[in-house]
């Protein structure tokens, strides 16, 4: 099924939008279309402290940068991520790696 995926150590996602613009440049997507989108959530913990989390997710417009893979390149979002919190690979490998991270999300993805 989902052979490849992107592991996101999302505790280190700072919401910088680099992945989004990387995707748009790579695919020449116009405004309004994107293969990846970052969401933000602000909330208060029980002790009153504020927390801010970001999470990128992949859309149906993501093709895992197949044409880059053919040239041995990582997907553009993964390569350019400013905090290097994204990793592309086989879902089997990434599953093992995810288990070593306290806050990570594995996005399996089968390009449409």
């Amino acid at each position: 099924m989902a052979k490849y995926g992107i592991l996101i150590d999302y505790d280190f996602c700072t919401g910088c939008h680099t992945c989004e613009v990387a995707c748009q440049q790579e695919h020449n997507y116009p405004v309004g279309l994107n293969g990846i989108k970052v969401t933000e959530y602000e909330y208060q913990l029980a002790n009153g402290k504020v927390k801010i989390d970001y999470m990128p997710f992949l859309t149906d417009l993501c093709d895992l940068c197949m044409s880059r893979q053919a040239e041995g390149e990582r997907p553009s979002c993964v390569k350019h991520c400013q905090t290097a919190c994204m990793k592309f690979g086989l879902t089997t490998d990434l599953t093992a790696e995810a288990a070593t991270r306290p806050r990570a999300a594995l996005h399996t993805h089968v390009p449409k």
Partner: peptide, 23 residues
């Protein structure tokens, strides 16, 4: 197109939205 340069010690391949929107 513009891409981060992985051989450069400063950013090691990374980039930012303004660079990637340079065209």
């Amino acid at each position: 197109k513009i891409e981060g340069n992985e051989d450069h010690p400063w950013n090691q391949g990374r980039s930012c939205p303004r660079a990637l929107a340079l065209t």
